[in-house]
Simulated assay, not measured.
Amino acid sequence: MQWYEMLAVFVAAVWAGGINAVVGSGTLVTFPVLLAVGVPPVSATMSNAIGLIPGNVSAAWGYRRELAGQRRRLLRFLPASLLGAVTGSWLLLHLSERAFESIVPVLLVLALLLVVFQKRLQARSLARREARGVTGDPRGLAGAGMFLAVYGTGVYGGYFTAAQGIVLIGIFGALLAENLQRLNALKNLLVLGVNLVAGATYVWVEHVGSGPSRLDWTAVALIASGSLVGGTLGARFGRRLPPSVLRGIIVVLSCVAIVVILTR
């Protein structure tokens, strides 16, 4: 890369780290920039996933207070995310990029609708559970459905990473009676888990494989340093946003993500 290309990747990574901390979809910033500077699509996906991990760490740490009292949720959903990440990583290494990307706009539209109608859906879900004398998070078939939805999001995250946070926020916001900032904290930790598993898988495949390397370590270093800065800033300021403002940001970024993916 030329120096100006490296600068563009670093700046995009700072912005992506901040977006990921607040809601997600930072990959929609870094991925097109990597393509623009000449990194092949699969290489860009793998390098981007590894590079964003420091930003995920800083975002999760910044939201650590909002994680208080969510240990059971984390223990329920983290295995689903990790299993999904393994599946998605395998798919990336064995399927064509377009084979899976075709469902991304559909996922984002569904997530957007879940966020827009979050309060109404939360109220109905809570009313049904209260009528049955059920307290706490959804259990039984509803709980199993949430587990599968989180697993599916992990598959998508392990394959492409872009906007998985928006999908998670949409799912959690509609079905869990919880503040958006606390759900965002849970989302940050699950996304970190997905990217860690995906990144470790990519590195392992590169280590044992006999073909040419598909990881661009220059891109990884630039995105890692930039996302670390962005994740720290995003967590610092994003956690202060009122729920209505945060919801508005999620809706706007969801619309942008849908347009970007449809016009790629």
Score class of each variant (00 low, 15 high):
2 Q>K: 14
3 W>R: 05
3 W>F: 13
13 A>P: 04
29 V>Y: 06
33 V>I: 15
49 A>L: 12
55 G>P: 11
66 E>F: 12
71 R>W: 13
72 R>T: 15
73 R>W: 01
73 R>T: 07
75 L>D: 01
84 G>N: 10
85 A>V: 05
87 T>M: 09
88 G>R: 04
90 W>Q: 02
92 L>C: 01
94 H>K: 10
99 A>M: 08
102 S>C: 02
108 L>D: 10
108 L>V: 10
109 V>E: 09
113 L>K: 03
114 L>V: 01
117 F>Q: 09
120 R>S: 12
121 L>A: 12
123 A>Q: 15
123 A>W: 07
130 E>L: 15
131 A>D: 13
142 A>W: 09
143 G>I: 06
143 G>N: 06
150 V>L: 09
150 V>Q: 05
153 T>Y: 04
157 G>T: 09
159 Y>F: 15
160 F>Q: 02
160 F>H: 03
165 G>I: 12
167 V>Q: 01
168 L>Q: 13
170 G>F: 04
172 F>I: 06
173 G>V: 07
175 L>E: 01
176 L>S: 05
179 N>P: 14
179 N>I: 01
198 A>P: 08
199 G>M: 10
202 Y>I: 02
204 W>R: 05
204 W>L: 14
210 S>E: 13
211 G>P: 12
217 W>K: 01
218 T>Y: 07
223 I>G: 03
225 S>D: 03
227 S>L: 11
231 G>H: 07
235 A>I: 07
239 R>W: 01
243 P>K: 04
244 S>K: 11
249 I>T: 08
256 V>D: 02
259 V>N: 02
260 V>C: 00
263 T>H: 09
263 T>F: 10
